[in-house]
């Protein structure tokens, strides 16, 4: 069947249309149109919604809500999201950032989906017409989710607590070898009081580095202090192998880059 695009003014109507076989939601096109271009004939109908709330960013009382159609470029230039600008800017070149959406990034398979690594570290909540769900729950079952994700919400991290690193082999930027996002809070004595760390490319989707998080608690961010955390950096990882790097390589370099991020 030939491809067709159906546009709906409301998410509700788009959700209803997505129930038909052979449909796929179209965000910025960087995943869905690419798949069609590359010969994926399983999709015959793109569905999209132009509901204005999908394109809105609101920041109020330390709470952030980003509509699913918001692009990486819009996040990178938003004055209230400067702490996340680096993570949004890490996605693609300028044209990709003008197209790629937050919603699409949530569904991007490794080695893509760098911004979702940031959202996982930020403990984001995803909204759908059927209710909210935590990002970790979403990531586990994202292939079976047919409802349109309408927005992501999270609390703005305390100043200086959010760190993000994307490692690629091409300068100034390329596709990820791996990416790391961390929200670290420190007690007045410098010891880590809470840590939430997410990894990209270390599995087929973003994952938490829970062993590292635990090993950091009560430690100070020095080479000696983070050594136990780095020793368990590879716990539970199952990295992808692709033309950029093997799973072995990704596991080898993860502790190195994690160390650099923690000591930065």
């Amino acid at each position: 069947m030939a491809l067709a695009l159906q546009t709906f003014s409301t998410v509700k109507d788009a959700n209803a249309a997505l129930k038909a076989a052979g449909t796929r939601y179209l965000g910025g096109g960087t995943l869905a149109v690419r798949a069609a271009n590359e010969g994926d004939v399983s999709v015959s109908s793109f569905i999209r919604s132009t509901e204005p709330s999908l394109s809105a960013i609101t920041v109020s009382g330390g709470k952030v809500r980003i509509g699913a159609s918001v692009t990486m470029a819009a996040i990178a230039r938003h004055p209230d999201l400067s702490s996340l600008s680096h993570a949004a800017h890490a996605v693609g070149g300028p044209a990709i950032r003008n197209m790629a959406t937050v919603g699409g990034n949530l569904f991007a398979p490794a080695p893509y989906g760098d911004f979702t690594v940031a959202l996982l570290a930020l403990d984001a909540t995803l909204s759908t017409d059927g209710g909210d769900l935590p990002i970790e729950t979403f990531l586990v079952k994202r292939e079976s989710i047919h409802a349109i994700v309408t927005a992501v919400g999270f609390s703005l991290p305390a100043e200086g607590s959010f760190r993000f690193l994307k490692v690629s082999r091409i300068k100034p930027k390329g596709i990820s070898v791996l990416s790391i996002a961390a929200v670290l809070e420190q007690a007045p004595d410098g010891t880590v009081s809470s840590a939430r760390i997410a990894l990209g490319c270390m599995a087929d989707r973003p994952m938490r580095a829970t062993a590292t998080e635990k090993a950091l608690l009560g430690r100070i961010l020095t080479s000696h202090g983070i050594a136990p955390a780095l020793a368990v950096a590879n716990d539970g990882t199952a990295p992808i192998t692709d033309p950029l790097a093997s799973a072995w390589y990704r596991n080898e370099v993860l502790p190195v880059h994690l160390g650099r991020l923690l000591l930065a």
Binding site: L26, G29, T30, V33, F46, G93, A95, I96, M99
Partner: peptide, 21 residues
């Protein structure tokens, strides 16, 4: 969306025409 050879400017923004319907 990798090579950029199809880049065009749409309403002042750089876009990839191969991934734009």
């Amino acid at each position: 969306g990798t090579c950029g050879a199809c880049s065009v400017i749409i309403d002042g923004e750089l876009r990839l025409s191969c991934l734009t319907l």
